[in-house]
Design a protein around this nucleic acid. Structure first.
Lengths: 105, 105
DNA sequence: ATAACATATTGACTTTTTTCGATGTGACAG
DNA sequence: CTGTCACATCGAAAAAAGTCAATATGTTAT
């Protein structure tokens, strides 16, 4: 399975689309937290949290640190910056000016 | 219908998740284009393009300029910058340091 | 007014994502 | 080794998003 550049980008932005994942990010803004705390603060079943943490980690925006039976999650500075530059890249305009393509201005 | 802050944000990032919308943005990086050209360059049916353009415009990242029977689309500098600051806001960490929540470091 | 054109909307359908109980896996304590 | 705990994965069902032909809306030319 070869991921296209589009899939790569989508992985990052999809992580930010979901309401629950946004709330998780808010919680992590206060610093590193372990899964058990997130489960409690989010009020969601363990399997659901695990599902969302996987998506957040796969996007690179969050990193997980395993510590024995616990896993601690935190926002990744590097991943966030990567996301910002991706976004800037995608929305950069190389040429300005009116439509020259088919019809009048 | 009241949109939460989460829905507002999701609208922006969802616009970037779809492969076809990413390709449309790429095309618009070269400058303003009208729908008929996008349909041709994307090789997609008119109703599908219209669907995606609505999502892009609703996100604020693209703006449509109506000109008689044509509509010209372009990437919005303002919308893109808004998206970037949203992303920075969401991933900003207010406190750093280990997990103080439940278990040891 | 009528026809031709550009785009938007609808509706039926397919695909993808999310949800969560059940089960699996690996870590630690006794 | 056995039980318990923390987390991951599976599987089936529900919800959301995407696709596109058909149809509606609005614009321009005649």
């Amino acid at each position: 399975m070869v991921a296209t550049v589009y899939e790569e980008r989508a992985r990052v932005f999809k992580a930010l689309c979901d309401e629950r994942r946004q709330k998780i990010l808010e919680l992590l803004q206060g610093g590193e937290k372990c899964a058990c705390v997130l489960i409690e603060e989010m009020g969601m079943p363990q399997s659901s949290l695990s599902y969302h943490m996987k998506i957040l980690c796969d996007s690179g925006i969050v990193t997980g640190r395993e510590d024995g039976k616990w896993t601690h999650y935190q926002i990744s500075r590097q991943g966030s910056e990567k996301a910002v530059s991706l976004l800037k890249e995608i929305t950069a305009v190389t040429e300005t000016g009116g439509c020259r393509s088919c019809c009048g201005t």
